[in-house]
Design a protein around this nucleic acid. Sequence first.
DNA 1: TTAAAATTGTACCATTCAGTACAATCAATT
DNA 2: AATTGATTGTACTGAATGGTACAATTTTAA
Lengths: 197, 197
Amino acid sequence: MAKSDTRLKMIQTAADLFHRQGVNATSVDQILAKSGTGKSQFSHYFKTKNGLIQASLKYLHEIVREGKTPTGYNVKTWKDMEQWFQKYIDFQKSVDFERSCPIGTIGNDISSGQPYLRREVIAFFEWGRGQLVQFFGDRKTAGELIPEADPEALADFCISIMEGGMLLTKMQGNTHMFENAAKQALAHLKSLRKKKT
Amino acid sequence: MAKSDTRLKMIQTAADLFHRQGVNATSVDQILAKSGTGKSQFSHYFKTKNGLIQASLKYLHEIVREGKTPTGYNVKTWKDMEQWFQKYIDFQKSVDFERSCPIGTIGNDISSGQPYLRREVIAFFEWGRGQLVQFFGDRKTAGELIPEADPEALADFCISIMEGGMLLTKMQGNTHMFENAAKQALAHLKSLRKKKT
DNA sequence: TTAAAATTGTACCATTCAGTACAATCAATT
DNA sequence: AATTGATTGTACTGAATGGTACAATTTTAA
């Protein structure tokens, strides 16, 4: 097994288990067993569990940035925006409601006493937020939003609903609340759009 | 120490640590040390860690129902509704942004393989949701909401934003996103209210 | 007072945890 | 082929985990 293979397999397996079970419920040994790797490689590549957590966060950030996930932050049109929530809902349906947002799950498990890890989480949300801020800003510049519309506030609004909705889905085992919340969110956005003349 | 004292102290300490650190990051021994109790009492009252988790969830549900928490679901007026989000924001500020929603935190840590625990979580949200549904339903009956307003969807909308907002606050160490999201949520609710004639 | 029950303290167990030690093996370059 | 460095397998360590055993003590009530 080549270097990159082993290292990547560990990161992918870790990210998957962290996402499903949480960081604290996932042991290094479990990751190694599932990825078919050994402890010496783990020690060599990551040294500690925190090292692997950090690498997993970077990896998740990267694949979302590169659009390799079913969900993401590539929103350019109002149609994209309307589908933005739906993609998260569809994702949760596809995994039997057993996962919420990976960064949200992992981020919630990371204590404030681990600033390096928290910084990775914050970097992710800053980027994602920036993507949505850009979208709403562009739409406003294009004259498609009323002057009172605040791009930053709208981005925060959407992300909050997505995070909360996904968490509720996981806890309740269905997407009903998330779907209702998303519908209201889209209605709010619509009310801020200028009517076509 | 009387029975109720010991038992209650364990539950309160457990609920506090579960809320702050998560369930999986909190050991039974830590709870016992902090509450000044012993393992034999623990075994006697709760038998297992899951037993204590369940008792903690019931306890949290109870104190929220009884209005003994700074936040809650006692919403009767539009003024209450406007303050509903703010109370959560103020709470997070008061704890240095180190906690999100207790039920959200604990619920996220509970796997689907523990149906008894998950049921407690679901029961809590069903109750809280019911409180908000009742509020919006009452307001609609009173003619204060437009016919298109869906009380259930509005409840889910508010709870999603609260959960997501609190999670983002904890991860980011500030309430900026939550505050923006809450502001948008209230704007949306306002847009569904009938203008006074 | 006394017997039964509830409560508690201490020690212990098997398992799992994160992390280390170190020799063995592989791959690349010369 | 020889050397060097990267990679890997196996075994181990000490600490922490959840849970148990059991005797001792306190409380309750007859």
